[in-house]
Write a protein that binds this DNA or RNA. Structure first.
Lengths: 138, 138
DNA sequence: CGACTAACGTTAGGTGGACTAACGTTAGTC
DNA sequence: GACTAACGTTAGTCCACCTAACGTTAGTCG
């Protein structure tokens, strides 16, 4: 069983997930928060668009945006051009939060990848990216 | 964010997890079932020992063994040498089930790793194994 | 031999990520 | 105006993973 790539993937991802959960929990955040704030640094977007970019399901998006809005990290406003949509915008406070979480995310990578050399890290990223492409319509 | 190894890991693991869930659900199984049956092929063991070998938490172990026992794949009996313990044994029916799930697991690897060459697959396994060792006391 | 600690197994519950289904409003097309 | 699709929301499920508390049993120690 330990020879199975899917097993190795899910076990190492569980380890990565624990690191992410622990380090973000130290500042009252979760993985979804980081994912959304990072995406919004690229500019305002609708909830549906954010869902497409981040992989967060629309039903979960509502809850996460509620949390980020309550904490003042993002703002939601109706799109005057299309009343079906909200436009979600990051706030200054949200930019700071994104920077804080990004720093934590980088530290997590270092911790996670400690057993690997720099060349091995690059190769791992390359191989995982190939697998990601193979799973595109996720 | 897409450059982060932890992100790539969790996204590819989610993809692997979906494949595992879908393929096993086709025959009414889950990942924990396969993990336990595979481990029991190595001989009878206590629940605590099974927990240590598989990484399945003891509280989840109870539920999974209940399911496998109900379906006739394993048997539980008290250990005469130590009444605190149960001894869990795979049945003939369980061996067949393990073989069926192992075949599915191999097919999942092929599907998951389609974008990679044989050399790349070996390298991915090597790199992930290194990361697993780095997270040993999980 | 009783007190204490640890192992074992069970029950009950929680978390986070991921997902489904149904609904009401809005926009675009025919 | 009817129809279809997009958008956002609500309510829920599933799975892997995890914590806490409890009762029974076994081993150690004074």
């Amino acid at each position: 069983m330990e020879h199975l790539p899917s097993w190795l993937l899910t076990q190492t991802a569980a380890h990565a997930g624990r690191l992410v959960t622990e380090r973000f929990a130290e500042v009252g955040a979760r993985g979804y928060h980081y994912r959304l704030l990072e995406t919004l640094l690229g500019g305002p977007a609708s909830q549906a668009e954010l869902g497409r970019r981040t992989g967060i399901h629309l039903s979960d998006m509502v809850a996460v945006l509620n949390e980020l809005t309550a904490d003042g990290y993002v703002e939601r406003s109706p799109d005057p051009a299309d009343k079906r949509r909200n436009v979600v915008t990051i706030t200054d406070r949200g930019r700071e939060r994104a920077a804080e979480l990004a720093a934590r995310a980088e530290a997590i990578q270092d911790e996670l990848l400690t057993p690997l050399t720099a060349a091995e890290r690059a190769e791992l990223v390359r191989l995982l990216s190939l697998l990601r492409k193979g799973a595109a319509p996720a």
